[in-house]
Design a protein around this nucleic acid. Structure first.
Lengths: 117, 117
DNA sequence: TGTAATATGTAGTCAAACGACATATCACCG
DNA sequence: CGGTGATATGTCGTTTGACTACATATTACA
């Protein structure tokens, strides 16, 4: 199995996974910031519960799609916030998912769905 | 809960559900024809197992998204093929899902995913 | 001092896709 | 006439992952 097939076999992403990866696309974020970002990105439609978020982050770490970022930035306090960033694998999977989504809309247009015009 | 919220609460569709509904968008089809159509629509990527297909069809019937079509067309033989068509609810849900997918791609563009350009 | 926002996590449940299995007919070829 | 592949419909058991509920702790502000 080549790299492309390896990636394709992970698709489709769930909506939750898609939004988490997309939230990390511009740069590192910690869990709670991801929650707020996803809510904003989805126009309040997707509100991650903490159960969903942290089990998803654990899974994404195991899969090697994201990794922990050591935070040099202790903002005065000593609080530890665990930040995450995309790995190159994670970024590749996100790109592949975007292409898959485009394919879904392409076939909707083929089937003359007015909303897909 | 108004009609729009009723529909929104059913999203996101799974990929399997999306393709089945899309396969029925142009008109009635029976199970096996749906299987072949989905395979073609997805460029061989999505190959429904019969376990997936028939349990999905049963669920979609229960939900009232599709309904059985009485087949007047017995093609010479007496074989019974069970055909299905979209209900107006099913069609509305498919349209809403197309709009959701467009939203997913819109945010990917916002995040400068090159593949979403 | 209390309450809302920030922040991270676990446990148990449920929906749905999947592979494996089962059955039957039809068309065609050797 | 017998076999094989396509057509056609279905069940069962497993696994994945999202969800709700629960649990804990800090910070900021009124």
């Amino acid at each position: 199995m080549d790299a492309r097939e390896q990636i394709q076999s992970q698709l489709p992403l769930t909506e939750v996974t898609y939004f988490i990866l997309l939230s990390l696309a511009p740069g590192p974020r910690h869990g709670y910031a991801i929650m707020k970002d996803v809510r904003a990105l989805s126009r309040e439609r997707v509100s991650l519960s903490t159960g969903t978020l942290y089990t998803a982050l654990k899974r994404l770490l195991d899969q090697g799609w994201i990794r922990r970022v050591e935070e040099p930035e202790k903002n005065g306090d000593g609080r530890v916030r665990k930040s995450y960033m995309l790995t190159s694998l994670g970024a590749a999977i996100l790109e592949a998912e975007v292409e898959r989504l485009q394919g879904l809309l392409r076939v909707a247009r083929m089937r003359s769905l007015k909303s897909a015009a």
